[in-house]
Every structure is written in C-alpha cells, then in structure tokens.
C-alpha cells in the first residue's frame, strides 16, 4: 500500500513539474507552434503575426527569428528575410536547420543574380 502511495505521489510530482516547466516555456513557444500550424495551412500572414509576437516576447528566440525569415521569404520580402536569418544565426549559430535555411536562401539569391548577370552578358554579346 505504502509503495503504491509513493508511486502515485511521484507520478503527480513529475506531472506537475512537467506542466510547470511547460508553462514557463509556454506562451512564447505556443506562439511559435501556432505560427507553424498556420504556415502549414498556408496562412502565412497569421504565421507572421504569431512569430512577430514570439519575437516580442522573447527577442532571443532563434526559432522565432528563423520562422519569421521563412515567412518573409515566402512573401517576397527578401531584405527582411535576410535580417531575420542573420539574427537567428547570431542567436544560435550551431542550429543545423537555421544554417541550412540561410544557406539555401543565399543560394537562391545568388542564382537569381546569376541569371540576371547571364542575361546582361547575353545582351552585350
């Protein structure tokens, strides 16, 4: 009986600490998650709104900056996207997903510029 009681208390304690820790991450990450949910459903304006809120609540959230950059890229706001990627990289330079996003973003910019340069060269020829 004693053992069962201890087991129950331990379980309640663990659940409680988990909930508490969840609450401390809480509102900030819920904004990020909600933004992801919106983006997955192609509601990019809503996603931007959520991730902007997440940045306001926690300016040091690399994820919020990264996601915001992706949304800006989607919207064609390339300058804003670059700024957000840069801050995300500064905040978490080891994150492989942010790195991959930023590198692909830079590659796409270069390929567009190269296309333009090629076209200009062809025009000169």
């Amino acid at each position: 009986m004693k053992y069962k009681k201890i087991k129950l208390y331990a379980f309640i304690l663990i659940a409680f600490t988990f909930i508490l820790s969840g609450c401390s991450r809480s509102y900030k990450s819920s904004q990020i998650q909600f933004g992801i949910f919106a983006a997955q459903n192609a509601l990019w304006d809503e996603a931007i709104f959520r991730w902007k809120k997440a940045v306001q609540l926690n300016p040091e959230s690399a994820a919020a900056h990264n996601n915001l950059a992706v949304a800006y890229e989607k919207k064609g706001l390339l300058d804003e996207a670059e700024k957000e990627y840069e801050t995300a990289m500064k905040l978490n330079p080891k994150n492989s997903y942010i790195k991959a996003n930023f590198e692909n973003f830079k590659k796409s910019l270069v390929s567009q510029d190269e296309d333009e340069k090629k076209e200009k060269k062809d025009e000169k020829k």
Partner: peptide
C-alpha cells in the same frame, strides 16, 4: 515563383 524547402523550428 520557385519552390524551395525550408525548416520551421521550435526552440
């Protein structure tokens, strides 16, 4: 437009 792959992340 060009279709590209990106990662959305959570802290």
């Amino acid at each position: 437009s060009r279709i590209q792959e990106r990662y959305l992340i959570i802290d």
